[in-house]
Amino acid sequence: MIEVNAVYVLVAREFKKFIRERSRLISTIARPLIWLFLVGGGMSKLVSPGMGLMGVSYIQFIFPGILGMTILFSAIFSSISIIWDKEFGLMKEILVAPVSRFSIVAGKALSGTIVSVIQAVIILALFPFLGIRIGATGIIETILVCTLLSFCIASLGIVIATFYDNFESFSVIMNFIVMPMFFLSGAMYPVKMLPQILKLVARLNPLTYGIDALKHTVFEGAGIFDFSLVTDVCVLLATSVVFVGVAGTLFERKK
């Protein structure tokens, strides 16, 4: 059962804090910009469009990956704020309320989705400056994929957050989950080019499919993707359902 009132107020709270915490917005926007222009710009000189990139420049090639990065960081950050809520007690206030654990998970996942899509759209708006051309349908499709990916990553973040009770774990999560997820996602280089073992790991990473789907919608037709769009969307939907289910079950568990 889902209590709409609870879902609404969890999202409203996240949104309010998102608007209020300028520093958080600035840092989540600045990170992709730095990667895009400093890493992308620098590497463009080294990587020629001929090297498996199907005619797009390197800075263009990583654009979907940078969108994915924006989503990865903002959705995970939003979800693992649950750890802060546990540490500072608000989680108890939420848990004693007469709302189903599933509503709490839904509220948190939607919170992460919304703030993360907003940030992704801000980054997406840069595409004309990179010489990329996306039509109106392409933009809508891209935003839809961003939404699905955000939901998937936010739900994963909730699952992760249920395992930690204090924010000392923050750097562990960043260094051992988020960064590897980013590098093994095809964001910076095609998955095809990875060594066999890493290729396998990349295939288990939901972000890989999200970024692959973004490559489809951003470069309509250019053949730089690894899977079909249908595969990507199905994997993202399926993993989202699994993550929400697991998160709900873990929340239900009493000590």
Partner: peptide, 25 residues
């Protein structure tokens, strides 16, 4: 009222109460 405070310190007093009112429908 828990032993350790469970307010959201980044919200106002009123917002904390609104949050609660919604949770309890």
């Amino acid at each position: 009222v828990f032993q350790d405070t469970t307010l959201d310190k980044d919200l106002t007093a009123r917002e904390n109460l609104v949050f609660h009112a919604y949770l309890y429908d």
